[in-house]
Simulated assay, not measured.
Amino acid sequence: MTKTKATLIGFTAVLMWSLLALFTIGSAPVPPFQLNALCFAVGGLLGLMWTARRGFVVLREVSWKVYAFGTLGLFGYHYLYFTAFRLSPTAETGLIAYLWPLFIVLFSGLLPGERLRAPHVIGALIAFAGAAVIVLTRGGEAEGSVRGLVLAFLCALTWAGYSVLSRRLGAVPTESVTVFCLATAALSAAAHLSLEETVWPADASGWAAVLALGIGPVGAAFFTWDIGMKRGDIQLLGVASYAAPLLSTLALIGAGIASPSWSIAIAAVLIAGGAALAARASARVT
């Protein structure tokens, strides 16, 4: 598989994550950890069906340390994310949580064989500014807390660390993500039973939204992201990830849930410009 193909496959995860908000709204009133458990269970089952083609022996060959790493990455990120917004449901919390693409770009410079150029960093900062325009203009629902903001920062570090360290596990088959998903589903179920009241989807459309989440944004996306992180252009993928909040907003507009505004146009220019700068830098490196 070429680096370009792996990068394109990795970007499909960003496209799927852009539908996360739309499907999450459709899955209401299911609480976060219960929703997480259901979706990761669906994603894990899909992974089992995919792994069956190659044989489950490939899963037995993976070290338990890798499974622990992957599970901590997926569950740890979502646990910190949900808890941060529970404590501080503000735009600032969302913005801090969205530092992870910038951290991916910065951390990638520590990887052997990777060359981090100034345009990568500048492009990431420009794209982050575009994401900031979207997140901050959405506003928040309540006053935040310092603890929530700290957890949002840890959330961003967790996902960036998981993504970048996945590069060091290039020899580990992507099928291992199946176990990450199933283990995350089990831990999410435990968190749900401890912290939340069980509430099932209200109707068929709610169940369809849960299924769609498990198939895409909280399922296949983690498999394609794994391919992108291990074999693709990690700096370019980091910057391109800022397209997710923009595409998410456009999806909400298309569904009639949000309204178009000038801030979206400004964000689009910033994010596209940042990604273009990073892409140009990557082209020069190769």
Rank of each mutant, 00 (worst) to 15 (best):
A21W: 11
A267T: 12
P173H: 04
G206A: 03
P31N: 05
I227R: 08
D203G: 08
A221P: 06
W50L: 13
A279L: 13
W100T: 00
V121H: 03
S63P: 08
G55A: 06
R167I: 03
A244I: 01
V58Y: 01
G256E: 02
L111K: 12
S108R: 02
A91Q: 05
L46G: 15
F82L: 10
G139I: 13
A13M: 04
L110F: 15
L165Q: 13
I25K: 10
S27T: 05
L111A: 11
A240K: 02
F222T: 04
G26I: 00
F223M: 11
G144M: 14
L157R: 00
A84K: 14
A265Y: 10
R115A: 11
A160I: 05
P119K: 10
E175K: 03
L213H: 07
V164F: 01
I215D: 01
A131W: 04
R284G: 00
S259E: 14
F69K: 07
L169E: 13
P112D: 13
G274S: 13
L110Q: 12
V199N: 09
N36L: 14
R86W: 12
G26H: 09
L15M: 13
L72M: 09
T224K: 00
P245T: 09
G140K: 08
L236G: 02
W159I: 00
E61C: 09
I96N: 06
P245N: 07
A191F: 04
P173T: 13
G161C: 08
V199I: 15
V164Y: 02
L111I: 05
S241F: 07
F85E: 05
K3S: 09
G109N: 08
L151I: 08
W100I: 02
A84L: 10
L19N: 02
E114L: 14
T158K: 01
A268E: 04
V150Y: 08
A21K: 00
L111M: 09
G140I: 11
R60G: 15
A258Y: 07
E175V: 10
Y98G: 05
F85N: 11
W159K: 02
G256K: 04
G232E: 01
P89A: 04
V66A: 15
F69W: 14
T24F: 07
R138P: 03
S263Q: 13
T198F: 12
S263G: 15
P31W: 08
P101W: 09
S145G: 10
T174H: 10
A244Y: 01
G139P: 07
G26K: 11
A204R: 10
E143C: 10
A276C: 13
P119G: 07
T178A: 07
T71W: 11
A68H: 06
A186V: 14
L95F: 12
T2I: 03
C39Y: 03
A124K: 00
L45M: 10
A283D: 00
T51Y: 06
A220S: 15
I96K: 11
R147T: 15
G144R: 10
A52M: 01
L72G: 14
L106S: 12
V62Y: 03
